[in-house]
Amino acid sequence: MFCSLKAGDKGKIIDISHVNHLVQRRLLDLGITEGSEVCVKCIMPFGGPVMIESCGQCIALRRKEAVQIEVEKL
């Protein structure tokens, strides 16, 4: 689960299918899908968005969507 990652941790996405399909599509546009390696850069306070890095680009998404992404810690 994504929530087990802390800022600075790296992970590999295993399953993204539980996420809202719009979010899924947008992540796919940005090249983030199953098998992508991500690094958590920053987690905003009070349940705010998370900032992740994948293949040299930074992306922010909401916490509630991020926790639905199945991640394997690296």
Partner: peptide, 11 residues
């Protein structure tokens, strides 16, 4: 219900 927030942070 639907709300979407995925944003690219350019360098």
């Amino acid at each position: 219900e639907t709300s979407l927030f995925v944003i690219e942070l350019p360098p």
